[in-house]
Design a protein around this nucleic acid. Structure first.
Lengths: 257, 257
DNA sequence: TGGCCACTTTGATCCAGGTCAAAGGCATCA
DNA sequence: TGATGCCTTTGACCTGGATCAAAGTGGCCA
């Protein structure tokens, strides 16, 4: 539908029923909720799976649901009249999709991989927000993180060169991958790339050809090794970090929050 | 200090003492607060004035205060090692500056005009947030608005041409100006431009020369008339709107929230 | 009133990244 | 195992906006 999706993805085989078993329990919007509050959420939540390429919401939609990503990757993107498109958010498990308090979606949300969502009906969720300080507090925290990430991204879009953009992108993935495996970002780190070249281009505000050229550029300079085009091994993290010029000292979130 | 400020600005001559008299009372973070809650805020708030060019916070600062803009314009900006700079937020009266729950500032906040702030000590404010659902709710709402604005801005930075960027910028100012005066955006609207060419360039991810050329371009095409370089009269709103391609139908906020 | 200084405009040239075109790679399926 | 189709890479060329340089413009102060 949008061309940014991967061809195929393995089945998740994951169907939590109970919030306390949930893989994203400790990071999602519900992570501050007490057992009593969880019980209320549990009653109203429902699961839905989206195939790669499927729209989760479309720009202009009057959205009736919102919720958390349990598994998979979701891209938020905005489109100009003539088709130029820019990705404005890249969301991973535990991230929240939807805009409480305003039903009209200002962007498309598209499943990049197969995606499983934990959803709520908008009206019910808004009611819960109003009565549940822990839910609201966590949502505020997550929104502030996303705003910081968006601003980091704006610096990239406005001022970085193509090579710097790609290096920044790889560092973001690296930080994410190392966090998941609980290892530090070090030379030799193998980083899975969950996006096609087209999606990367839409992420970075470039064309697909430029992205491709920059990949080979980094490879020829010895900063990375490519394993197929769904993964990269980072062989010179120090150089990548300098290129990316992420003043990323760990004090704040990476661009994908 | 940063070169984006105006040379001089008139004195405000505005010093509210009591929250109920405050010019931003109905839109700021405190706008949902009850009289009893206001009384608590009133006790802890204090005012501070910043001169044009003065840093309100600097990237990396361990900020001890946060608060609302009562009067003036503030730019948030991020800087790369080699000095390239991108504006990532443009804030007006009633907007909130500061990141609750994380003291390290991820960007500079610079007074563009003379600015009057209503400030709180961070620790006190965070305590109030935790006990005051109305304060928290309004802050969440404002943060969601800013996030939407940031994403609109990302589309501009990533995909629009220089002419489109400037047209978008003018439409933003136009919407703001017309809202203030409570008139509709119509041909002939006189729009004050509170930023220097350099600040506009940092806003749009361009250079100052390109901004200047685009201004004369729009003028020669008859879309605007320039009155000095602190104001523009929009003579062909329809054309500007098409150029800007803001799918701005009033359903959601403009880029500066 | 004139000189200074900061901001802005304009001109000439350059180059990073876009565009257009063609040729790999690689998975799927008959 | 060969055909199909999608994704990716590479090449040749072009152009929008950056860069470098110089000439306006206007406010402020002596």
């Amino acid at each position: 539908m949008t061309g940014i999706v991967q061809k195929s993805t393995p089945d998740l085989g994951y169907k939590p029923n109970c919030c306390s078993d949930c893989a994203i329990r400790h990071r999602a919007v519900c992570s501050y909720s007490t057992p009593a509050e969880l019980a209320v959420l549990e009653e109203t939540k429902f699961y839905q799976t989206f195939e790669p390429g499927q729209d989760i919401v479309s720009e202009g939609d009057n959205t009736k649901t919102l919720g958390s990503i349990i598994d998979g990757v979701v891209a938020l993107q905005k489109t100009l009249e003539d088709g130029r498109r820019q990705m404005v958010g890249l969301l991973f498990p535990s991230d929240f999709i939807g805009r409480p308090l305003r039903p009209i979606a200002p962007y498309d949300a598209v499943a990049v991989t197969r995606v499983q969502m934990c959803l709520f009906h908008r009206t019910k969720f808004e009611k819960m927000l109003a009565h549940n300080g822990n839910l609201e507090r966590r949502l505020l925290e997550m929104t502030l993180d996303e705003l910081d990430a968006a601003r980091e991204w704006m610096l990239l879009l406005g001022r970085k060169t193509a090579a710097e953009k790609l290096a920044s992108f790889l560092m973001i993935l690296a930080r994410r991958a190392s966090a998941l495996e609980n290892v530090s970002v070090a030379n030799g780190l193998e980083v899975p790339i969950p996006l096609t070249r087209e999606a990367i281009a839409e992420f970075l505000g470039l064309t697909i050809e430029t992205v491709s050229r920059q990949f080979t550029g980094l490879r020829k300079k010895g900063l990375i090794e490519l394993s197929g085009n769904r993964a990269a091994k980072l062989t010179d993290i120090a150089a990548l970090r300098i290129l990316a010029d992420t003043d990323q000292d760990g004090t704040y979130q990476d661009m994908t929050a």
